Simulated assay, not measured.
Amino acid sequence: MQKKKIILWTLLSVVILFCIYTIGGSFYLINFALLPSEKDNVEKVTHKNDSIYSFMKPWTDSLNKVKAIHDTTIINSEGLKLNGYYIKSTKPTRKTAILIHGYKDCAYTMMPIAYIYSHELGYNVLLPDLQYHGKSDGKAVTMGWKDRKDILLWAKLANTLFGNNTEIVVHGISMGGATTMMVSGEKLPPYIKCFVDDCGYTSVWDEFNYEIKEMFGLPAFPLMYSSSALCKLLYGWSFGEASALHQVAKCKLPMLFIHGSADDYVPTRMVYPLYKAKPQPKEIWIVQGAPHAKSFQLNQKAYINKVAQFTGKYIK
Rank of each mutant, 00 (worst) to 15 (best):
M1D: 13
M1C: 11
K4W: 13
L8Q: 12
W9Q: 01
L12E: 04
V14I: 15
I20G: 10
Y21K: 00
G25A: 12
S26H: 14
A33H: 01
A33T: 14
L35P: 01
S37Y: 04
K48T: 09
K48I: 03
F55I: 09
F55E: 11
P58I: 12
S62H: 11
A68N: 12
N76H: 08
S77T: 13
E78G: 05
E78N: 13
G79C: 10
L82Q: 06
G84C: 10
Y85R: 15
Y86N: 13
S89G: 13
K91M: 11
K95C: 12
K95Q: 14
G102D: 08
D105P: 00
Y115M: 08
H119E: 14
E120F: 00
G122A: 09
L127P: 11
Q131F: 02
G134N: 11
V141A: 14
D147N: 08
R148W: 08
L153K: 13
G163N: 12
E167A: 01
V170W: 03
I173E: 11
G176E: 03
G185I: 00
E186M: 13
P190M: 00
Y191P: 05
K193F: 03
C194E: 12
V204W: 03
E207G: 03
E207L: 14
Y210I: 04
F216P: 03
M224V: 02
Y225D: 00
Y225T: 11
S228N: 10
C231A: 14
K232W: 10
L233I: 14
L234A: 10
S238Y: 11
S238G: 15
G240H: 12
Q247T: 01
K250G: 03
P254T: 02
G260F: 06
G260M: 08
S261A: 15
A262S: 15
D264F: 01
V271T: 13
Y272A: 07
K276I: 07
Q280G: 03
E283W: 06
I284S: 02
Q288I: 05
A290R: 12
A290G: 12
H292I: 10
H292K: 13
A293G: 07
L298C: 04
N299C: 06
Q309W: 08
Q309C: 06
T311E: 09
T311F: 08
Y314A: 10
